[in-house]
Computed example of a mutant assay.
Amino acid sequence: MTRILPGILAMAAIVVASNILVQFLFGQWLTWGAFTYPLAFLVTDVMNRVYGPGPARRVVFAGFVVGVACSFVGTQIMGEFGPLVTLRIAMGSGLAFLTAQLLDVAIFDRLRGGRWWRAPLASTLIGSTVDTAIFFTVAFSGVLTFLEPANDVSWAGEALPLLGIGPVVPLWMSLAVADWGVKLALALIALIPFRLIVGRMMARVA
Rank of each mutant, 00 (worst) to 15 (best):
T44C: 08
P38S: 00
D104K: 01
G67S: 05
L42F: 13
G74T: 03
T86K: 02
P55L: 03
P38D: 00
M47Q: 08
G94H: 04
Q101V: 04
G67Q: 09
A90I: 00
A100W: 05
F81L: 15
A40K: 02
V66S: 10
A56C: 02
F41T: 06
D104V: 04
L42K: 11
V65N: 10
T99N: 06
V66Y: 12
V73K: 04
A100Q: 01
T86P: 09
Y37H: 10
P53L: 10
A56S: 06
M47P: 09
L102N: 10
L42A: 12
G79V: 00
R58I: 09
R49E: 14
A69Y: 13
P83W: 05
D104E: 13
A96F: 07
L98A: 14
F81H: 15
S71I: 15
T86E: 05
G92S: 05
F41S: 09
R49I: 04
N48D: 10
F41R: 04
G79Y: 04
A100V: 03
L84F: 02
P55S: 05
M47Y: 09
T75Y: 11
G74C: 01
N48I: 11
V46L: 04
V60L: 00
V105M: 07
M78A: 10
V85C: 12
V68G: 14
V65L: 15
L39G: 14
F81D: 15
C70M: 15
T44E: 09
V50Q: 04
D104N: 09
G82L: 02
I77P: 06
R57F: 13
G52C: 08
V50T: 13
F81Y: 15
R58H: 14
Y51K: 08
V73Q: 01
G63F: 00
R49K: 02
G82D: 01
A100F: 07
V60I: 06
L42W: 09
L102S: 11
P38A: 02
P53A: 13
P53I: 08
E80G: 06
G67F: 02
F81T: 15
V68I: 11
G54Y: 15
M91R: 11
V65T: 15
F41N: 05
T99D: 04
G54E: 15
L42P: 06
A96I: 01
A62H: 04
I77H: 03
V46T: 09
A96P: 06
L102K: 13
G74Q: 03
M47A: 12
M78W: 14
V59W: 00
R58S: 14
F97D: 02
A56Q: 05
I77L: 06
C70P: 08
I77N: 07
L84R: 00
F72S: 11
L84C: 02
V85M: 07
F64N: 12
P53K: 12
T75V: 09
V65C: 07
V65M: 11
V50S: 12
D104M: 01
T44W: 11
V73H: 00
M91N: 11
L95F: 03
T86S: 09
L98H: 11
R88G: 02
G63V: 01
L102Y: 09
A96V: 08
V60P: 04
V59I: 06
A56H: 03
G74V: 05
G67Y: 07
T99M: 07
V66H: 04
Q76L: 14
N48C: 14
